[in-house]
Each structure stands twice: as C-alpha cells, then as structure tokens.
Amino acid sequence: MRELKDKKVLMDDESIRRGLVRISHEILEKNKGTENLVLVGIRTRGVPLAKRVAAHIQEIEGKSIPVGILDITLYRDDLSTVTQQPIVHKTEIDFDVTGKILVLVDDVLYTGRTVRAALDALIDLGRPSQIQLAVLVDRGHRELPIRADYVGKNVPTSNQEVIHVALEEIDGEDQVILQELV
C-alpha cells in the first residue's frame, strides 16, 4: 500500500473564501442575477461548497436561492469493477429542476466521470434549461469531454499526485493540499 505525502498547501481558508466569492460573482454576472437560479452540490464536499456559494449570493444580491444535494453513487460507471460497494446516500433536491439554471458544485474536477454521472442523475430528475459547473479546483486529466464554467483554482498536476480538499463543515478546517503517492 502506497502512502500519501503532503507536498504543498495550494489554498488556505482565505484563498478558498476569495475563490468562492469570485465564483459567486461570476455566476450572477453570467446569468444576470438570481432568476431561476438553483445550486446543487455533489456529495460529499460539493454540498458545503454549494451552501457557501448560496450564502455569498445572498450577501451580494439579498436573495436566497435553493440548494439541493445530489448523490451520484447509483450512476457511477465503475460499480461492476470496484470490490467495495460505495455507500449510497440520499439525494435531497426538494425543488423541481425543470426550466431552472442549475449550477452543479463539486470540490475537484479530475477525470470528469463524477460530473458525467451527476449529469445523468440530474436529467432523470427533470429538464433544467441549463446546467453549469462550478468547482473549487480543476486539476486536469479529463477522460471525458467535460469542462467547468467556474473554477476556484486551476492546478496542473501529475497522475501521481492527489488533491485533498478539507472543509470546515466536514473536516474541521479549510485547506486544499497537494499530496503525492510515495
């Protein structure tokens, strides 16, 4: 079993906050306000990120927008190859997505397979007028034709490296660390 070694702190709590504030402004600018706007966080770490973006938007525009939680486990394309079945959690989207501008939020964009699964899951829930993608870190190495509309930080990485995102709500602190398999 190979171990992970911390290599570098990519983002601290302040730079995460600034990244999310910028993303919130970009979302509002691109969509000209909050009309029909909804956010959906991908479990696990996309959820607190989506809630934070919603809070920033509330601060900026004074309007609250709905936030949903998406679990993509049942849509994964590797279920027949992994030996340990990932635990399925509940999807909690208590609003109709049809006709909405839906911003999907996740922590790291890597191969694009999670986003592919999320798109399939969302389309089963209804027909949003648009789906956009916001991520805290884009680390490259896409295996599918998928790109993000809003990016907190672009980080060129090698396949030997791992991006570890820690968030206050889940991990007790805000930090993005570059780690290496040794």
Binding site: T73, L74, Y75, V88, K90, T91, E92, D124, G126
Partner: peptide
C-alpha cells in the same frame, strides 16, 4: 433509505 427517495421522482429508475 437512499433507495426510497427514488420513489418520489418522476423517473423512478436509476441505471445502477
């Protein structure tokens, strides 16, 4: 519990 949520959807099917 997670599976029961699928009952509340319009499309009651997942590709798992």
């Amino acid at each position: 519990e997670a599976m029961k949520e699928i009952f509340t959807r319009k499309v009651k099917k997942v590709p798992t």
